[in-house]
Simulated scan of single mutants.
Amino acid sequence: MSALVKRNLLRYFQSKSNVFLSIFSPLLILGLYEIFLKHNLSINFKDQMVLLNQWLLGGALSVTTLTTSFNILKTKVTDELGGQKANLLVNGLSMRQIMGSYLTASGIVGFIMTTIIYFIYVIFFELQGEFFINFEQLGNVVSMILLNTLISVAINGAIVTFIHDESALQGVGTALNTMSGFLVGAYVPIGIVPTGAQHLMQGWPGFLTASVFRNQLITTPLTLSEKKYLGTIINWGNHQLTHVEIYLILISVSVILIIITMLGSRE
């Protein structure tokens, strides 16, 4: 199976368009933020640019893992359409092994590309003198990237399992690239959107990871109202989720989705 994982990785990184499309969403988020959003947000937060940049990075990291891990999973559909899946089965690999190779490669790509986006954002903001790296939290950020990779691969794997044609694949990919930024509150803080949309966002796993990222990245003390406005805390009903509860929710959802994916991959 390791050879198949390597082959999936090579196919991804050899396609410049695939790599670019994978990081298009986080780069778009950065561009829109710099051109349209930064000034208005800075008025509300009295020019606290370091705070706002750290908040933005938290959302971008959550989006990146989802979009990059999805793009490499396209290989699953192209293999089916091109007849490669049948060749792999003839060579003795089971459908679960084949799907496992896609998920493994997806996880590797998701982690690598998210780490790259982290450094792109940090370097960009550092050159402007508008970022502060909390090195004590760096290990926690890396750990969160790993957990975000797990839930992103699980979500994308469950989706791609039931896609068998290219038009549907492109449609889902476009929807993910478009909606992921909004669902994690990367374009506007959650405090701006209507209550119904807030409930939707707080139920999305990507928003949970973005919230933890923001807690780990933001170095500026915040009031309770500011935390709610920026989405660094999450309330389900009258209960504020702790980080441990968020981790357990993400791991549980990941396990369920991976089981669904593997069951859906049976011959």
Rank of each mutant, 00 (worst) to 15 (best):
F124S: 14
F124T: 15
L127F: 11
Q128V: 07
F131K: 05
F131T: 00
F132C: 02
F132T: 13
I133F: 07
I133P: 07
I133A: 10
N134V: 03
F135N: 09
F135Q: 11
F135A: 13
F135W: 15
E136I: 07
L138S: 14
N140L: 12
V142W: 00
S143A: 14
S143Y: 03
L146Y: 03
L147E: 02
L147W: 00
N148W: 01
N148P: 02
I151Y: 06
S152A: 12
S152H: 08
V153T: 09
V153H: 03
I155E: 02
I159C: 08
I159Y: 04
T161Q: 10
T161A: 08
F162D: 05
I163M: 08
H164Q: 13
H164Y: 11
H164L: 10
S167E: 13
S167M: 12
L169F: 09
L169M: 14
L169E: 09
G171M: 09
G171R: 06
V172P: 06
G173N: 11
T174D: 05
T174W: 11
T174P: 00
M179N: 06
G181E: 10
F182L: 14
V184R: 10
V184H: 07
G185C: 08
A186C: 13
A186L: 12
V188T: 13
G191W: 07
P194H: 06
G196Q: 08
A197F: 15
Q198R: 15
H199A: 14
M201K: 12
Q202F: 11
W204M: 11
G206N: 04
F207Q: 08
L208C: 05
T209M: 05
T209H: 09
T209D: 05
A210W: 00
A210S: 14
S211A: 15
V212N: 00
F213K: 06
R214V: 04
R214Y: 06
N215S: 11
